[in-house]
Design a protein around this nucleic acid. Structure first.
Lengths: 242, 242
DNA sequence: GTTCGTGCATTAAACTACGACATAGCTGAC
DNA sequence: GTCAGCTATGTCGTAGTTTAATGCACGAAC
């Protein structure tokens, strides 16, 4: 456990960088531990009584909301380094859950420890807020996509965005990156039906812009895709705003 | 100026509560000042070189993104107490702007002061992060709305959400609240065309669920609207998560 | 006062992108 | 083998967009 936390990506993304040289003290202070979950298992983050916050360490998944009638909206893909849980429990209506699409390792720590973090480790708190700002920005962009763009634009946007996130995590090999999601997941991300998602993917494949099979996404022509996405996409900024 | 900051809503929403008894010191420490803008004027928040953060003090407006081809997505309505500016400048593609739809008063302070806030006033920093979490949650809900709901559901959701925000600010009089927006603004919020927005509004009016005229929104049957919005809406929580 | 212009709400008619449904193929699990 | 879950395509209906015309309030010019 402790050894695992030594190379905890929390540090990698600088959210808790330089926390403490003593790993044991780190564990104790934040009461955090490791949680392994299988592929396809879900973590429900109900209302404010979700006492825990997570950071994804390994694996991939997705974060989504469910409506009572079964409709599902994927809010974002979950990649290593992502901080999850703050956004739950603010208001109380839709169910907010995280599902692993590959085996995952999460770093868990107690929500009650958050306040002490702000008091004792302002730098880390600052980084955490910065992470929230990045997420907020991403959601605004997603909102514009669902509100204004058609199927092809949405698909291009979604796949490029995912690819670039992988890129910044060093998960890209040439023009290929892992993509452990089903077309249904993509549909629920982009606000399209499964069928239409499939057809849109086909169009892009036929235009030789990408291929998507066996959990591998390949972008043959990222530039053309960016054109289609109707926006000039810049890489994700990692550095703070001071 | 200083007197104006004495009843600065920053305190009201507890983001900067109990900052300093001395208003002058408050002003000096955060180099913040007052900015009055007319109705229909806009503030552009380009990339990371937007050096300022705002809090809305008085009036209403909207925060939106613009695509190169002119399409516009309203991200959220701006009401007194809203903290704006963190989300800009993280990545760099769509233009992010704020437009006043009534005369507004903003409280401005320097982005460079943010870091000192985290070091010296952890409680305020904590509240700020909490505010970001609320916003993040709202955006997730908006995303689910644009991705999964049809026109009537979207309209019901949007108007109820706005009404409840007004409620929590004490701006509601009976079943009426101010609504200083055009139908085009609503359309760009909900991802609908202007004509369809109009038709949808008409349907809801004919069902006696609401009326919307002369800048006043009246909800005759909030319960029925909540049913239509396909979600059980809870009031916005103001208290922190410790 | 009339006349024009401008901005917004309203309504109707033509067109289209997308969803619903149905069906079939493909793969791996058992 | 069968069964379950995912992908692939075709047809058709509809919820939505686009365009355009009308009305209506308000202000400026004269």
């Amino acid at each position: 456990m402790v050894t695992n936390c030594a190379n905890c990506p929390l540090r990698k993304i600088d959210v808790f960088k330089d926390l403490d040289r003593d790993e044991l003290a780190y564990m104790q202070r934040f009461k955090h531990g490791e949680l392994k979950i299988d592929s396809q298992s879900t973590v429900l983050m109900e209302g404010s009584n979700s006492p825990q916050l997570f950071t994804a360490l390994k694996g991939m998944g997705l974060r989504y909301k469910t409506l009572e009638d079964g409709r599902r909206q994927v809010v974002n893909f979950v990649l290593p380094g992502d901080f999850i849980g703050l956004q739950a429990g603010v208001m109380g209506e839709m169910k907010h859950s995280v599902e692993a699409t590959t085996p995952m390792v999460l770093c868990v720590f107690d929500r009650s420890e958050l306040w002490s973090l702000f008091k004792t480790q302002p730098e880390r708190a600052f980084d955490l807020t910065w992470a929230a700002a990045i997420e907020e920005h991403f959601l605004g962009e997603a909102l514009a996509t669902l509100g204004q763009m058609d199927a092809i634009e949405r698909m291009s946007w979604g796949l490029i965005r995912f690819f670039m996130r992988c890129e910044s995590l060093g998960l890209v090999d040439g023009d290929r990156c892992p993509f452990p999601y089903r077309q249904q997941d993509l549909a629920d991300t982009l606000g399209l039906s499964l069928v239409h998602t499939n057809k849109t993917l086909m169009k892009l494949r036929q235009r030789q812009l990408l291929s998507l099979e066996a959990g591998i996404l390949t972008l043959h022509d990222p530039e053309a895709l960016k054109e289609l996405a109707a926006l000039e996409i810049e890489p994700v900024v990692q550095r703070p705003l001071i």
